[in-house]
Design a protein around this nucleic acid. Structure first.
Lengths: 313, 313
DNA sequence: CGAATCCATAGTCTATGACTATAGCGGCAG
DNA sequence: CTGCCGCTATAGTCATAGACTATGGATTCG
């Protein structure tokens, strides 16, 4: 059985006239007759009674019509849902993102995304980079935002922006200025992430460059917990500047710029190289860039905080 | 889009492996790849991500799969319902039958039919021959049982059996013997159907052959009513012998054989020549003959009455 | 009874799908 | 790291299926 036959059949069933039906499906009348004939032969019975000038459905035809119509409808819908997906009118997007980035970028990002694509079901998971890569490889994530560089076969990355890291210290801790050299870290008690975290590795390597050995007094996995520990005076830490600024509650912390060298890392998009990225994923990637540009440019202060408050409410 | 593509698609979606899927649908792997490729091209997006050794559905593929599966299911069902119809496992049969024949033949007939084809929805309408023909022509009836001969274009008839007509008289009316010549009708007051009824015409012509002019004292359309009028002594009548015997309540009537000549008419099946007759209709027609044979043969008396009572209850 | 309408058949041509062979790519083991 | 294996995509050839025009046969209507 062929879809063509079902279409022709429905046309005849509708018009009860082979010639009109043929016009309607844009074929010649003999072509249509042959297809109907083939269908009837395959089914082993007549679907139409040709009563001289009139054509009527046989009982078999009536029964057949019900399912033929549904079948064609489903085929149409199959194409329809795909087209809606392409137009980003429906779909699902699962994003994995670093918890730090999550705090300041994701809120305004999802806000914009939802505005433009209200019918896309968006899911955001805060995860460390390694989890994100794993999620991509196992198809649990469509796209990820993680630290670069990331050299993994099949995973393509696109740099988005650089994150400056800053020294975060409790208000009681005397540093001296609003800026500090990396060397100045040597005597400070630090609260950092465990050794297998990207951020920790990055701090270690920057310290090594500056020739200092950090004094780690506490290890915590979540930046949230680290900030709290710092606020209670357990020690200082090193975290992305934007992250800390975005969640600074009432300035119980000092944010001190680091230099010589300034520790920084690159944040970027990651996705499976061969995996198909639909409209929604591409638009999301594009929005990442424009949103980050907005955050870093003039609108940084007030605009960001407004957005943050809005989505946090 | 083609059904073939949907089938191949479902095979790949199931096996997540082009080569295995190809085996499963009995085509070569390149053939299947080309069809999937064509489908993806038509839809404008990938349905599968080819990740090295692995194949996974894209989001578009997942959405598509739902409807593709339903479409194929409907196609399968379309064929299924027709096949069940052919096997007389489902269907509908609308029969038009003469009210006289209805009384003695239909009861055992539908009983047998229902036994053999319990899932066929059977509808029986008691109508005069002219209505039956009209019903056939307008497709309200699938098959009819009426008086022959019937010369109408497009309507084919098959003789089933001959119905002998008998003189029916109230017990009070003295006829003389158990047999009567047609001539003997001349002095009798008769209750007959109106002039446009086949049965009446038939009686008229038989009388004409015998050279008598019937004295009609009452005209009624239903044989039921006529019998009642006769029972009350209004007059005699002429009706099919089997009909009267089948509904004789407590023998308030005498049934007198007529001869010289014996009035009789042929009852037969009628259907639209060009109309497709499915299994159910054909089986019904066959059952008509065998049932009638049984009625006319030895099993006439007791067996018939048993059947009648059973279905009348 | 002739004209018109309508479906079926015959014959021809194009296009599509299936096949074999093979290339290309990624994964795995020695 | 290199060679083999598994899997999909591409190239080229061939047969079939479907579309078209012309026409026949049957029925209806004026």
């Amino acid at each position: 059985m062929e879809l063509r036959q079902l279409e022709y059949f429905m046309a005849v069933a509708t018009h009860l006239n082979f010639s009109r039906a043929a016009e309607h499906v844009h074929v010649s009348q003999p072509s249509l007759s042959i297809q109907i004939g083939g269908l009837e032969k395959e089914l082993g019975t007549r679907l139409f009674d040709r009563l001289g000038r009139k054509v009527v459905l046989t009982q078999a035809g009536e029964l057949f019509q019900v399912h033929a119509e549904r079948a064609l409808r489903e085929v149409e819908q199959a194409a329809q849902v795909v087209h809606e997906l392409l137009g980003a009118k429906r779909g699902r997007l699962v994003v994995g993102t670093l918890s730090t980035v999550n705090s300041y970028l994701i809120a305004p990002l999802v806000s914009r995304f939802k505005q433009r694509f209200p019918d896309i079901h968006l899911q955001v998971h805060a995860q460390p980079s390694s989890e994100i890569v794993h999620g991509l490889l196992t198809n649990r994530l469509d796209i990820g935002i993680c630290l670069l560089p990331l050299t993994h076969t099949h995973v393509t990355t696109i740099p988005l922006f650089e994150e400056r890291l800053a020294l975060i210290a409790p208000v009681g801790m005397k540093i001296g200025k609003r800026r500090a050299r990396m060397q100045d870290l040597a005597p400070l008690p630090l609260v950092l992430m465990p050794a297998d975290y990207c951020l920790r590795k990055m701090v270690e390597s920057e310290c090594a460059k500056a020739g200092v050995h950090p004094q780690v007094v506490l290890e915590m996995t979540s930046p949230e917990g680290i900030l709290q520990a710092v606020a209670e005076g357990t020690g200082a830490t090193i975290l992305p500047e934007l992250y800390v600024k975005s969640r600074l509650p009432a300035s119980q912390l000092q944010i001190i710029d680091l230099y010589d060298p300034t520790p920084r890392h690159t944040v970027g998009l990651a996705y499976l190289t061969k995996r198909h990225r639909d409209q929604a994923a591409n638009e999301f990637a594009a929005l990442c860039e424009t949103t980050m540009r907005d955050l870093q440019s003039g609108s940084t202060g007030s605009s960001r905080n407004k957005r943050h408050k809005r989505t946090a409410a």
